[in-house]
Computed example of a mutant assay.
Amino acid sequence: MKIAIMGAGAVGCYYGAMLARAGHAVTLITRPQHVRAIEERGLVFETRAFTETLSAEATTEAAGMTAADAVLFCVKSGDTEQAGREMAPYLDAEAAVLCLQNGVDNAERLQAVLGRPVLPTAVYVASEMAGPGHVRHHGRGELVIGPGPSSATIADAFRQAGIKTEISDNVVGALWTKLIVNCAYNALSAIPQLPYGRMIAVDGVRACMADIVAECLAVARGSGIRVDDDVLDVVMGLAAGMPDQSSSTAQDLARGKTTEIDHLNGYVMRTGAALGIATPANRLLTAIVKLMEESART
C-alpha cells in the first residue's frame, strides 16, 4: 500500500516506521527539520529491542499524499481544520482517511472539512521525537478503528505490519477511554515535567487522578457514551507499563509549544458545563497549563 502520514510527529513517525518495515511505501508529511534529516539518512526508528534506519519519503507539502491508498491524520487537534483544507485537493477519491488524534471530536471536525467519511481511531502508543527524523518508541502501539468499507483491509495490513488493530462498533467509547487516560496523566505530568512513574508515586497524586477520572466519567455518561467500568483501573495501571514516558503535553510545554489542553481536560470542562456537571479538577488543570503556555510566551 501507499500510505501518507499527515502531521508525522512522534505518533505518525512510529506508525510510519512500522509500516515501512513491512514494505509499504510511506510518505511522511512533517516539519522541515525532520524532512531534511530523513532525506539525508532515512528515518531512525529506536525501540527497546533495536534501532534501525528506514527508507521513507518525506515532505512538508500535503501534495505528498497524492495517490495514497490510506492517509493517517496525526496533526495536533488545534490544527485539524487547517490541515484538512490543505490536504483536501490531493486526496484520492478511494483513499481511506484515519484520524489518529487526541480528543474525541476530531474525526467529526475533519469529516466536516473534507466532506467525506473519516475513520475515528483510538491510539495507544508511547513515543517521542528524540531528534530530527528520529522516533523513539517507549511502549504499546495498538489501534482501535471505527467500522467502514475499508476498515477490514486497513486492519489486515496493519496487523501484518505488527500493529495490533481492532475494529470496534464502540470506537467513540474507546476514544473517551483514551481521553480519560490523557486527562488523568497529561497535565499532571506536564506541570512538574515528571515521567509517569515518578509522578504517580508522589503522595496524593493517585487521589487527584481518581477525582479527574470521576469527573470525566460523569461527563461521558451524561453525554450517553458507553465507557468500560474498569477505566479507573486502566488509568492507575498505565504508569507501571511506561514509567519513563512523558506526556505529549509535557513535551509541548518543554519546547514552548501550544498544547492540546483545550481538547483534553478543557473539552471535559466545556462539555460538563453544557450538561450542568461540575468539573473543578479538570478546570484547574486546564487553567494551570494555559498559564504555563502564557508564561512561555513572555
Rank of each mutant, 00 (worst) to 15 (best):
Q111L: 11
D262P: 06
D211Y: 02
A152D: 10
E40L: 07
D211K: 13
L119V: 13
R31M: 10
A88W: 10
R270F: 03
L114S: 10
L91I: 12
T60Y: 00
Y124A: 13
L28P: 00
M1C: 01
M6V: 11
R159V: 07
S246L: 14
V35S: 05
A254D: 00
T47E: 05
G141Y: 06
Y185L: 08
A56L: 05
T177W: 02
R283E: 14
A112L: 07
G241E: 12
A130V: 09
S248T: 00
T60Q: 02
R221S: 05
L253N: 00
A63G: 07
I212Y: 10
D230I: 04
L43M: 15
R283K: 12
G64Y: 08
N106P: 00
S151T: 08
D233A: 14
A67N: 13
R198A: 14
A130P: 01
S77H: 11
L28K: 06
A296N: 07
L98R: 13
M18V: 05
T177P: 00
N182A: 06
I261P: 08
L98Y: 14
I212L: 15
V125Q: 15
A20R: 08
V171E: 06
T258G: 00
H138V: 04
A95F: 08
G9E: 03
R283M: 11
I145W: 02
Y185E: 01
S127I: 03
A174N: 05
Y196A: 11
T53C: 12
H138C: 02
A273H: 01
D79F: 05
V231R: 10
L72W: 15
C99M: 10
L284T: 01
A67T: 03
Q160L: 10
T286D: 01
D92T: 01
V171G: 01
L285Y: 11
V135A: 12
K290Y: 08
A126V: 09
H24M: 10
E81R: 15
I3L: 13
G224A: 13
